[in-house]
Simulated scan of single mutants.
Amino acid sequence: MSKKRPVAVALAGALCLVTTACADSSTDAQAPAGDKAAAATSGYPVTLDNCGVSEKFTKEPGRVVVMNGASVAEVSTLLALGLQDRIVANQQTYGMSEVEGRAAAIKALPTGEVKLNDAYDIPREAMIGLRPDLVLSTTSYGFDEKNGFATRAQLKDVGAGTYVSPQGCDQDTSKMTVADSYTLLRDMGKVFNKGEQAEKLIAASQKHIAEVSAKVAGEKQPKVMVLFSNMTMGGNDFSSVVAKGIYNDILAKAGGSNAFENASKTSFADLSKEKVAATDVDALVVIGYNDPNPAAYAKTLLKEFPQWPAAKNNTYVALSDSMYLGPSNDLAVEKIAKALHPDKF
């Protein structure tokens, strides 16, 4: 029942350094008056300081490649901004979503029809052949030459901009929060001249989360086990258990806490069955990554550990992309809060 993924290390999103939209003074000084007027109207040029690399965009990218990275954060963000027509190759999919129509919309995107490497992603030669002007990667892993990928410098040489998502610079996603999802939205809004739309999405998400959090404020925080459905990342029986990262921020906003937060210093814990059995678990959150039935997996675990309060109360939530870096974290907050504190809704 397990699924081994070579890119399990990339199950997270990416630390972007502080990003700014600004004009390049030397370029502007040399630009004709008409070009400067067009730039002022469009908001270009836009410069992002991304993982120590300065990326300048003088117009909206028209040929975007979205790398796999075991994520849907980047493709979902583009879809939320209405940019699906810019994507020439997408390798991200969960096969499901809390947002109606999103899974089908992702499935309908072009893949570039390239032969993927052993990490289920786009190798260097194929990437160059796609003629991108922007390549999005969940972490810096996607631009590592040792992994057979095109580097950011190599892509720049062929006219392609690159972007690593928040908390992905050093591939350490343990400090990721919901705010990083907003950073990703805001950055893509700048790059594609969709800043106003991005801010509206961020404001709506913040408002929704604040309303839910207010309902559960002051309540006892149940201990929640978060794990990926039917996925193996290590050597123990439970190697896809979440310890840290954006998941904990979502739990806190929903009025819960992570039962295994101290089980690892990194994002994921590799736990024995005995350790899991000895921990009081008040609720389960099972994340379906290309698993068609995470709810069935949750029910199996509740039967396996009948001593858990979660099993006695049949308390679980099956989620997919909303529990992850991306534009829909507010949906996860609401669904988890309703499961943990049903009397408040």
Rank of each mutant, 00 (worst) to 15 (best):
Val158Tyr: 03
Gln171Asn: 10
Ala89Val: 06
Ala126Leu: 03
Val64Asn: 05
Gly159Trp: 01
Glu100Gln: 14
Lys107Thr: 15
Ser140Cys: 07
Glu100His: 04
Leu136Ala: 07
Glu55Pro: 08
Asp144Ile: 07
Glu145Asn: 09
Leu81Ala: 03
Gly112Thr: 01
Leu134Phe: 03
Thr162His: 07
Pro166Tyr: 11
Asp85Val: 04
Val178Ala: 14
Gln154Leu: 11
Glu125Trp: 02
Val88Leu: 02
Val72Trp: 02
Met176Ala: 15
Lys115Arg: 08
Asp172Ser: 08
Asn117Phe: 03
Arg124Phe: 13
Asp180Val: 13
Gly159Met: 00
Val99Thr: 09
Gln91Gly: 00
Asp85Met: 03
Ser140Gly: 13
Gly148His: 04
Ser174Arg: 11
Arg102Lys: 14
Val135Thr: 08
Asn147Trp: 11
Thr151Asp: 08
Ser76Val: 10
Met67Cys: 06
Arg131Glu: 10
Pro61His: 04
Gln171His: 14
Asn147Cys: 13
Ala105Asp: 11
Asn90Arg: 05
Asn90Ser: 07
Asp170Ile: 08
Gly148Thr: 02
Val75Thr: 02
Asp187Cys: 10
Gly129Pro: 04
Gln84Arg: 14
Asp118Asn: 14
Glu60Arg: 12
Leu185Cys: 11
Val75Lys: 02
Glu60Ser: 15
Gly142Ile: 08
Ala153Met: 05
Cys169Thr: 00
Ala73Thr: 13
Gly129Thr: 01
Arg152Phe: 04
Phe149Lys: 03
Asp187Asn: 13
Gly142Arg: 06
Leu134Glu: 09
Arg86Asn: 02
Phe149His: 04
Arg63Ser: 00
Arg186Glu: 13
Val64Ala: 00
Val66Arg: 02
Asp180Ala: 13
Val158Cys: 01
Val114Glu: 05
Ala70Cys: 13
Gln92Lys: 02
Glu100Trp: 09
Ser71Gly: 08
Gly112Asp: 06
Ala150Phe: 06
Pro110Lys: 07
Tyr182Glu: 15
Asp172Gly: 14
Gly69Pro: 08
Asp187Arg: 03
Arg186Ile: 04
Leu81Ile: 11
Ser54Glu: 12
Arg152Trp: 12
Asp121Arg: 00
